[in-house]
Design a protein around this nucleic acid. Structure first.
Lengths: 197, 197
DNA sequence: TGCCCGATGTATCGGGTCGATACATCGCAC
DNA sequence: GTGCGATGTATCGACCCGATACATCGGGCA
């Protein structure tokens, strides 16, 4: 999945690793937290070995630093093969698990996907979240008396989050079907923080 | 973190792997999806090597199956050392990242934790979620024009989830300070499903 | 009666990901 | 002038996951 996201970003413009990580963090930040270098660099190696990207060592500006044998920056560019691979990944929906980051990554590149694929991915996600929601309902209704108050509260909160996500997906699906892009209601500003503590 | 959860469950009663996995899935299901055997068994090995649990091969009931050299079930029991380790883990708050399952695991065992530790963990979690929330607000306010509608919508949804979790944590913290256990408002029943599609 | 299927049950393997860590340069504030 | 935080490349060990293999058991169904 990281492979997918990297190709998507390099599709827009070449970059070096550090910048790539920053962009990945904001682009995928809503579902995953931060991408570590321990994942990034090996993935870049793999992509390069597969011929999807090229690594190009760029010497720093020739003027300033005299004889320091400084490490040069490495710029990664996508190749034609890489673009093909990206298109292929764009159309394929990821695995069928719930907490899989694949959905978030796909969503992040929805602007480059056709509407049919978007619908397929959104509905697939909805199905998975609904399954999870049902599982939690079962726990709450069937096993409630065997669990302590904190476990129950955790379960309730999780169920709540699932229901909310399903509603969100329903809205997106409806918008998708109507042919309009999603509602872009930017929250005007940080709502006033709750009273001091 | 899996280590922690396993010790917590075995603390209640001995179990074999399959049952352990089922219990783990419901107990931690609200934050993590499912625990794979590829994680479970190696962790059990590690725990056994560390002297925290014992593995005991239990032959099946001696009567029924004649000469089939059936594989016997393995029952895991916690040791005194394991109980010590569990207490130690109960008090320690996990790492400082956002999407770390450590919080969920800790929360799942709050019933065995003292109030001071509960407060510390809840407040630590709140701080991390608040940081993430601020990061998302920054993206939305500072980089909004450079991102497409779908990325923005994803960000908005993520921000929403963060705000909601902060409110949830605030409630729990308030309850904790007042000395009462959390509100146990079990949702009566599945709300009627949205209209047919 | 036989047959298949799903639940129970133990276990490994390859590969991806993480957090910690190391090293080096740059600009700038104190 | 010195330390500190941002930029920048990179690796290592530990951990976890999905897929897979193998085996038993009860029950439905033809």
């Amino acid at each position: 999945m990281l492979e997918f996201a990297i190709l998507g970003l390099l599709h827009e413009s070449p970059m070096h690793g550090y910048e790539l990580r920053k962009q990945l963090t904001t682009k995928l930040g809503a579902f995953r937290a931060a991408i570590s270098y321990g994942s990034l660099y090996p993935t870049l190696r793999r992509l390069q070995a597969a011929g999807c990207i090229t690594e190009e060592s760029v010497a720093p500006a020739a003027d300033a630093p005299l004889l320091t044998n400084r490490r040069s920056r490495v710029v990664y560019k996508i190749t034609a093969e890489g673009k093909e691979r990206f298109q292929e990944l764009l159309g394929s929906s990821g695995p069928e698990t719930f907490d899989d980051p694949g959905f978030g990554v796909h969503f992040a590149f929805f602007a480059r996907t056709d509407s049919a694929t978007r619908l397929r991915i959104l509905e697939g996600r909805r199905r998975r979240v609904e399954e999870r929601r049902e599982g939690m309902r079962d726990v709450l209704s069937r096993a409630a008396e065997r669990l302590d108050a904190y476990t129950l509260e955790l379960q309730r909160h999780g169920l709540d989050a699932c229901e909310r996500e399903v509603r969100w997906l329903e809205e997106l699906i409806a918008h998708e079907r109507s042919g309009r892009p999603p509602q872009v209601t930017i929250p005007s500003n940080p709502p006033p923080d709750p009273p001091e503590r």
